[in-house]
Amino acid sequence: MSTDIRFPRSTSETGRIAPKYNRHGGGAKGGFEMAAWLFMRLSGIVLVVLIFGHLFVNLMLGDGVHAIDFGFVAGKWASPFWQWWDLAMLWLAMLHGTNGVRTIVNDYAERDGVRFWLLVVLYAAAIAIVILGTLVIFTFNPCPTVNGVPLPGSFCPKP
């Protein structure tokens, strides 16, 4: 005859461990988590090159920091090379940063509702910035004509 020994009070009535510790999702595949992990490493390396290249060209070359003005930016974005450089920097930095904050939210948000809304705000902000930034890089026009009148700009071709 065996004695019925009750489970310690911290365990649930049905299972052997407290429900909090049961992994929900039942063996959810970590393919995305692996891709995210790998992306963080690869984008990090590329970003180091892109950001320090950006800083060197803007702050060190030529007149250095004194050369930066509206015309300097307009001149850079006239070249597809710098358009694509800045686009890569924007996308990689935004995805890298967003994924980093996503992992922090996942690690430290204790309630599911809080976690959900923090992630909604995070993704909305990231999407808005990426779309706006991409539009600015490719539709930037330094010498716009408003109502048939060209706006002043010393670097613009004289009408």
């Binding site: 063996g27 959810a28 595949k29 970590g30 995305f32 988590e33 692996m34 690690d107």
Partner: peptide, 13 residues
């Protein structure tokens, strides 16, 4: 395969 779970090794910071 078990540790490739979303609660597996990728949660290590």
């Amino acid at each position: 395969e078990i540790l490739n779970d979303k609660e597996g090794v990728w949660r290590c910071r």
